[in-house]
C-alpha cells in the first residue's frame, strides 16, 4: 500500500500526470487570454495538448554533428527532474514527500531542467544553439540572485533566530499566522518573485534564450518530433511549478485542510498568477536584450529582494 501510494504520488498526483495536465492547461489559458488581450480570437484552451500530441507523431531528426545520446537524453532528464521537483513542492496543505528536500534543494533542483536544455542545445553543435545557451545561462545567473534573497528572507521571517529552510515549517507557520504576503517586509520579496517567474519559465520579455524571430529558438533549433514535444512540455510544467512555489511561499495561509478543496484553490491560484505575471507582462512588453535583462534583474529585482531581506532582518 505504501509503495502504491508513492507510485500514485509520483505518477498521478502531484507528479507526472497532474503537473503535465496543469502545465498544458496553464499554457493554454495563457495563450487564449494573451490572444484576447491582443484582440485576436486565439486557439482553444487545449491547443497545447494538440500541439504536444502532434509533435509526438512527427519524425525525429538528429543532426550529424550532434552527440546522439546527450541530444536525445537531455529532454528526458529535464522532464524527470521537473516531475520530481513538482512532487516535492507542497500543494497548499497536501505534502507528498515530507522531509526529503528544503528550499535550498529546490533552488538547485530548479536548475536541472535549465541545464538539461543547455546541454541538449549545446550537444546539437548548431551555432544558433550556442548563442541560445549562452543567453539561457546569463538569464539563469540573472534570476538566481533575487531568488536566493527571497528564499533567505522567507526563511528568516519563518525561522526567527533558528535556521529554517523547511517547506513544511513554512506551510505550518502560514497556517498559524496567515499568509506571508500579508507581512509588510515580504511584499517586495513577493513582487520580486513575481518577476522571477517569467524569467525562469522564459516568457516574453525574458525569452531572450529562445527568441524565435532572432535566433530561431536557440537551444531548440535542431530539435524536432518527440524530444521537442518533451521540451515544450517542460516549459509548460515550469509555469505550474513556479506558480505553485509562489503560492507555497507566500499564500500558504489559504490552505483549508480538505485536500480536494486545497487542490482546487491551488489550481485557481496558479491560473491567477499565470495571468498576472506571465500573460499580462507578455502582452504589454517587447523582448529585452540579454544585457538589459541581466541589468534589470541584478538591480531592480535583486534590489526588491534584498530590501525585503534587510526589512526582515530589522524585524518588520
Amino acid at each position: 500500500m505504501e509503495y502504491l501510494k508513492i507510485l500514485f504520488n509520483i505518477l498521478v498526483f502531484p507528479g507526472c500526470l497532474f503537473v503535465g495536465a496543469m502545465g498544458l492547461l496553464l499554457s493554454g489559458i495563457d495563450r487564449k487570454v494573451l490572444a484576447r488581450m491582443q484582440k485576436r480570437v486565439g486557439p482553444p484552451i487545449i491547443q497545447p495538448l494538440y500541439d504536444f500530441l502532434k509533435l509526438l507523431g512527427k519524425e525525429t531528426i538528429v543532426p550529424k554533428a550532434a552527440n546522439r545520446k546527450v541530444f536525445l537524453g537531455a529532454p528526458v532528464v529535464g522532464f524527470a527532474a521537473l516531475v520530481v521537483t513538482a512532487a516535492l513542492i507542497p500543494v497548499l496543505g497536501y505534502r507528498a514527500f515530507e522531509g526529503s528536500a528544503d528550499l535550498i534543494v529546490l533552488l538547485y533542483l530548479l536548475t536541472i531542467p535549465a541545464v538539461a536544455l543547455i546541454i541538449g542545445g549545446s550537444s546539437s553543435g548548431n551555432p544558433y544553439a550556442g548563442i541560445g545557451i549562452s543567453r539561457e545561462m546569463v538569464t539563469m545567473m540573472s534570476y538566481e540572485l533575487p531568488l536566493i534573497c527571497i528564499f533567505l528572507a522567507v526563511a528568516k521571517k519563518v525561522g526567527g533566530s533558528t535556521l529554517c529552510f523547511s517547506l513544511s515549517q513554512i506551510a505550518a507557520y502560514q497556517q498559524a499566522n496567515g499568509s506571508l504576503i500579508g507581512c509588510v517586509s515580504l511584499i517586495p520579496a513577493a513582487a520580486a518573485m513575481l518577476l522571477v517567474i517569467p524569467a525562469e519559465v522564459g516568457t516574453q520579455p525574458f525569452d531572450v534564450a529562445e527568441a524565435e524571430t532572432e535566433i530561431l529558438e536557440g537551444p531548440l533549433i535542431e530539435y524536432s518530433g518527440a524530444p521537442l514535444a518533451v521540451f515544450k512540455l517542460n516549459t509548460s510544467m515550469k509555469m505550474y511549478i513556479m506558480t505553485a512555489l509562489f503560492s507555497a511561499l507566500f499564500l500558504g495561509g489559504l490552505a483549508t485542510g480538505v485536500t480536494a478543496l486545497d487542490v482546487l484553490i491551488q489550481v485557481l491560484l496558479c491560473i491567477a498568477l499565470t495571468l498576472i505575471c506571465m500573460t499580462t507582462i507578455h502582452a504589454v512588453t517587447a523582448r529585452l536584450k540579454i544585457e538589459h535583462l541581466f541589468k534589470f534583474y541584478w538591480t531592480v529585482v535583486a534590489g526588491l529582494a534584498a530590501l525585503s531581506l534587510v526589512l526582515v532582518w530589522l524585524g518588520f
Binding site: 507510485l7 505518477l11 507528479g15 522532464f79 524527470a80 528536500a101 535550498i104 533542483l109 529552510f165 523547511s166
Partner: peptide, 18 residues
Amino acid sequence: SFWNPVVWLLLFIIVLAA
C-alpha cells in the same frame, strides 16, 4: 536539514522508467 538524495534519486528513476 532536509535533503534525501536517495529518495530523490529513486523518484527520478521511477519517472525515467515510466
